[in-house]
Design a binder for these strands. Structure first.
Lengths: 165, 165
DNA sequence: TTGGAAAGTCAACAAGACTGACATAAAATC
DNA sequence: GATTTTATGTCAGTCTTGTTGACTTTCCAA
């Protein structure tokens, strides 16, 4: 504690007020984060649940239902309802597994990829603007804090998607 | 672009993959962010809507219903249902305005303050841990990016609560 | 005094989460 | 080979939290 400036600083900045502002920043920012996709989804009579499914199927093509389940942290009944409509609407394809025929592997169709693009373009635009305003160093800190805030299970999933960054 | 290292960097780091990882980080971190309060709320048969109401009434004692409405961005019917149960359960007190008797000013009772404490302690603990792991500089960046991500209306609310930081 | 804003209420509805029960097929194990 | 476990799907019902629409009461202000 009596060592260089760093030690003192790391105690001082953790005031109750700082933490509360962090909590509120998280809340308001998340609203912004979801606002653009939500508007788009309204046009398709889909919701956030569909967005999440489409997002992670795109990021992990061929993922099984079970894997998606553990990423999304919902019940299979809940996910199934979403997948059923996406498959019926021709956005997602479900293929029986070759090694294990019990498993279903999920893929986006062309139409599914198109929706994913539309949604993620909007979300990336906002993210890009925020990154630009804040600058590269801020982005690094942003990512560090978010990662530290995750539950270990979610962090595992986070780091497993693609080859990380 | 041919100037010092900074100019090049601010273009390079905004790859599609970086932005997608930012989006996923936001998603997984928000789950962690809400996990602890959600567990506590289960014990009281309350939900996130109750948490939000209690949080912002605590931060802005005496706030009117209308002001709370614009902070939370829900319909008055939705908020009213939540407030009704909180008032009925003795966590929130609604006082008729003195200047304008149509307005109701909202305050936490002792019991309401106790619940707010329990919830925000849990949430601050996680925030504090994340801040400690990431360090002061990361926290600054975290806050900058989040603020840049907000919708202008929300940013206004964010900066209006208390005397900011 | 009348119009409109603020607040509240009632009703109906939808998304999206949940639980529980049950079905089927296939893999794994005994 | 029989049994158990796993993966998935489905039906039914519930809960929270959001929505819209219609309507009332209160009361400030032009």
């Amino acid at each position: 504690m009596s060592d260089s400036s760093h030690g003192g600083e790391s105690l001082l900045f953790l005031t109750d007020e700082q933490l509360r502002k962090g909590i509120e920043a998280m809340y308001f920012a998340y609203r912004g984060f979801t606002a653009d996709p939500d508007r788009i989804l309204d046009n398709y009579a889909y919701g956030r649940a569909h967005h999440r499914a489409v997002h992670f199927i795109n990021r992990n093509p061929g993922t099984t239902v079970n894997n998606l389940l553990s990423i999304l942290g919902v019940t299979k009944q809940s996910l199934n309802r979403v997948l059923r409509t996406l498959i019926a609407d021709g956005l997602v394809e479900s293929r029986v597994g070759k090694r294990d025929k019990r498993e279903r592997h999920l893929f986006l169709t062309e139409a599914g990829t198109a929706l994913e693009q539309e949604l993620s373009n909007a979300q990336r635009d906002r993210m890009r603007d925020a990154y630009r305003k804040a600058g590269p160093q801020a982005v690094s800190g942003f990512r560090q804090v978010l990662e530290a805030m995750m539950d270990p299970d979610m962090r595992r999933h986070f780091n497993m998607i693609k080859d990380s960054n």
